[in-house]
Design a protein around this nucleic acid. Structure first.
Length: 530
RNA sequence: GGUGGGUUCGUCUAAAGGCUAGGACUCAAGAUUUUCAUUCUUGCAAUAGGGGUUCGAUUCCCCUACCCACUACCA
């Protein structure tokens, strides 16, 4: 059992975009499997025909792909139909809707063994019972106490049951929970758990109306057939664990029953409750890996579109509820695979912190080469119709990457490199547009005009110290010092003219990146407007 | 309401009965810089409460409080 090759599955339901909590579940499954060279299987649990959302399956696959999580088996990366078992897909099909004919025989097997029964109560009848109980401050439960007085194969005569099963189609198959028995379970994260079967209700396993199983049946049957060794899923499934244990027993599959691990949920950054789509809209951060537009045309932002690198997203997600123990926080996917352990998964829910998510991206941004970033920047510039020499763009990226959270911020950090400011910050104008500074700037203009292009910029910071132009009165800083002017006011007045406010890169750098002619134009314009 | 799970700085977490409870994010202060940002230094800040067990509890047990999930012919 322990020596068997690990086989895990991620089994989302295509009812909408994949939540980042779902991505984390997929990630933990993936890390756990890959650590020992196991298989990661992607199965689509589309047994709820009412909630099916077109495009959701493709979204899930694209999301995992973006994160670098590729299934070994399962629905194809292109979402192509995999309905025939093959070497690559030995347990196909991987969509439960395509496995539809399979489940009925298993439901039948449970009925024959006395572990399940037919139930003929309509949804309306049961709703009425629930409402009635609610008014009396009680809870209606379809279980050992009530099943004897409801319309099912335990109470109806055999010929009537046969007639209803054969001629009607709004019946279900329900699991027959044993009465007052303690189910003893083990969870890899939570340890030993016990639950009394009398607190459970008789879950619907199969519906005649659409000839489909519910989650519980489909899940257990498929996990068994697909030889899943470890079920790693969200905490919301913990309450149905006893049912799943009982199902394995009812089928006689205890020997190959997988081990279970229930992950805590991702909580909203503020207030109470689990992280939801609304929190992202309200607080201004993505909840989904990729952008999603629903049928009503509502747009949900995605981490990808917000400018996150998938490595940063995955890194952040991995550390939300798991920690290898040291003080390192930046891990590649490969490192995560090596270090992951289920014992180190945190039991309590993790509140999501959007600030920290940004910080992770910043770390990855800074680790990128200037060349790579320049490629991203160049694409942004081209999109706004700007072309700029690549060699200088690479140098510029070295400077601005320390100022950015995302590569998409590059343009906002230094728009003045590509375009002269159209307006000046009023406070800075009041501070620096003094008669004295104007007089000095007039002289600086004249001095700069005389300098050759390659020296106008003084010593831009991209140059290694050894290649830097030696300090000399010939150049800008030397000229200022020689005249015993205060460096601050002169530089900031220049910056006001170059940038539009007293912020931004060093003056030498700005002159280097905009060129002497443009620098002179901006000083001239500044002096006129001041 | 019932059942189950959980609880260390504001947040993510470390400390598997034993140093002054450590790190990161955020925030604040200082240093550096021609400004801003970066960088560096420093600081603020926690074992939910109460009982036990023990020479010694963040750690083990019990109670309380609070939080979360489930309680569908959804997953």
């Amino acid at each position: 059992m322990e020596n068997k090759k690990r086989r895990v599955r991620f089994a989302p339901s295509p009812t909408g975009p994949l939540h980042m909590g779902g991505v984390r579940t997929a990630l933990y499954n993936y890390l756990f499997a890959k650590q020992e060279g196991g298989d990661f299987i992607l199965r689509i649990e589309d047994t709820d025909s009412n909630r099916f959302v077109p495009g959701a399956e493709k979204y899930i696959i694209d999301s995992l792909k973006w994160c670098g999580i590729y299934p070994d088996e399962g629905v194809d990366a292109e979402g192509a139909l995999v309905s025939v078992p093959s070497q690559r897909h030995p347990h196909a099909p991987y969509r439960q809707s395509e496995r539809k004919p399979l489940y009925r025989q298993y439901a039948q097997q449970l009925i024959d063994a006395g572990w399940a029964y037919y139930a003929f109560d309509t949804a309306e009848e049961l709703d009425a019972k629930r409402k009635e109980a609610e008014e009396k401050k009680e809870t209606f439960s379809y279980n050992y106490a009530t099943r004897g007085s409801l319309r099912n194969s335990l109470t109806l005569p055999a010929d009537e049951v046969k007639r209803l099963v054969d001629t009607t189609d709004n019946w279900t198959v329900r699991f027959k929970n044993p009465e007052n028995e303690v189910v003893k379970m083990d969870d890899m994260i939570r340890g030993h758990i016990e639950m009394n079967t009398s607190t459970l209700d008789d879950k619907v396993l199969w519906k005649a109306a659409d000839q489909l199983p519910t989650y519980h049946l489909a899940n257990i049957v498929d996990d068994h057939l697909m030889e899943i060794t470890h079920v790693i899923r969200g905490e919301e499934w913990l309450p149905s664990l006893p049912l799943h244990y009982l199902l394995y027993r009812a089928f006689g599959w205890q020997e190959s029953q997988p081990q279970f691990a229930h992950l805590s949920l991702l909580l909203k950054p503020d207030g109470k409750g689990k992280l939801s789509k609304r929190d992202g809209d309200r607080l201004g951060f993505p909840v989904f890996p990729l952008k999603w537009v629903n049928a009503e045309g509502e747009v949900s932002r995605g981490y990808r579109e917000d400018g996150y690198y998938p490595e940063a997203f995955i890194n952040m997600l991995a550390l939300l509820g798991w920690n290898p123990g040291g003080e390192q926080e930046i891990f590649s996917l490969d490192e995560l695979v090596k270090l992951f352990s289920m014992e180190k998964v945190v039991k309590s829910g993790a509140r999501f912190n959007p600030e920290k998510a940004k910080w992770f991206n910043e770390q990855y941004l800074r680790a990128k080469s200037n060349e790579e970033l320049a490629g991203e920047f160049d694409a942004l510039l081209k999109a706004s119709g700007i072309s700029y020499p690549m060699a200088q763009l690479v140098e510029l990226c070295g400077l601005i990457k320390e100022r950015a959270h995302f590569a998409k911020d590059f343009m906002d950090i230094c728009p003045y490199i590509f375009k002269a400011p159209t307006e000046y910050n009023e406070k800075d104008v009041a501070k620096f547009c003094t008669p004295e500074n104007k007089e000095i700037l007039l002289k600086v203009f004249a001095h700069l005009e005389k300098l050759p292009e390659n020296l106008a910029a003084d010593s831009p910071s991209h140059l290694p110290a050894a290649e830097a132009v030696p300090a000399s009165e010939e150049y800008l800083t030397g000229y200022i010092k020689e005249n015993e002017w205060k460096m601050g006011p002169v530089m900031n007045t220049l910056r006001l003219f170059f940038v539009g406010e007293a912020k931004g890169l060093g003056i030498a750098d700005i002159i280097y990146y905009i060129g002497k002619a443009e620098a002179l134009r901006r000083i001239k314009a500044g002096l006129e407007r001041c």
